[in-house]
Design a protein around this nucleic acid. Structure first.
Lengths: 135, 135
DNA sequence: CTACATGCAAATGCTTTGCAACCTA
DNA sequence: TAGGTTGCAAAGCATTTGCATGTAG
């Protein structure tokens, strides 16, 4: 797998992947940087970015196509949906099944050749919801 | 409307809104800048950004919550879905009705208080599709 | 040993902001 | 005329990249 692409399993790459797999959240590159730095203090943010791209190419993780200004990464490479907190920007999985028939609806109606879709829910996470009700 | 918010209808604001309403596409701030500059050559990009925000607040247009690195604006302030071309990044409307019952599916399954959702289709626009088949 | 990877820092691209001059109501 | 608005330039922030050095295989 690595060999085919002439890639090496460096310490940095190993730790980034391992830490990402431990999380159930969907961190940004900077958040991953913060976590990995506890194990490899001299790692650079550039290395984190580069390795996240490599891991995406290898199919180990996925880069999320979500709204919002930060790119987020997901240890789960399978297609699924997400919920974002409007207030704190936390992103969780949305536990509903993929809507496979959705793209058929568009089939006749658009001039585009449809490849896929992203569905993202917007809401308030429990923490922010609580703060909202009792400010 | 403007008076309540202590806002003024300046030439810049008027032209930005007028040009946006003429388009059926969903331009980025920079694209709007390019168009408006034909009418007001000395307008600055900062002014375009500031006015787009104001027009969003007034409910005249909407800022789209899409994936991708550029913010895009829509002359149509009503909720609807979009299709993005993977190749050239062109964004069109997706002519399918809002899925109002979608959020109910999540209701019991998530700890989030759901507020709304974004649905974005990914595909190839006719131009890029043609180039793809006959490279 | 020989590429691929890394750390560092500089560069990039989009967006936001501070400020003095300007204009709308 | 008051205060919102503009143009300009500088700052901000996330992400990318060039390059000499380091290291996995």
């Amino acid at each position: 797998m690595l060999k085919e692409k002439n890639l090496r399993m460096t310490k940095q790459r190993k730790v980034i992947l391992a830490e990402l797999k431990k999380l159930k959240t969907h961190p940004s590159a900077d958040e991953i940087y913060g976590i990995v730095r506890e194990h490899i203090p001299r790692i650079s943010l550039g290395t984190v970015y580069r390795n996240l791209e490599v891991l995406v190419e290898l199919g180990e993780i996925q880069k999320l196509d979500l709204s919002g200004s930060l790119k987020r990464f997901d240890w789960n490479p399978n297609k699924h949906y997400h919920v974002r907190c409007v207030h704190c920007d936390r992103v969780d999985d949305a536990p509903i099944a993929p809507l496979n028939q959705l793209e058929n609806e568009l089939y006749e109606a658009t001039v585009f050749e449809i490849i896929g879709h992203n569905l993202e829910f917007i809401g308030l996470c429990p923490d922010c919801s609580r703060k909202n009700h009792h400010p």
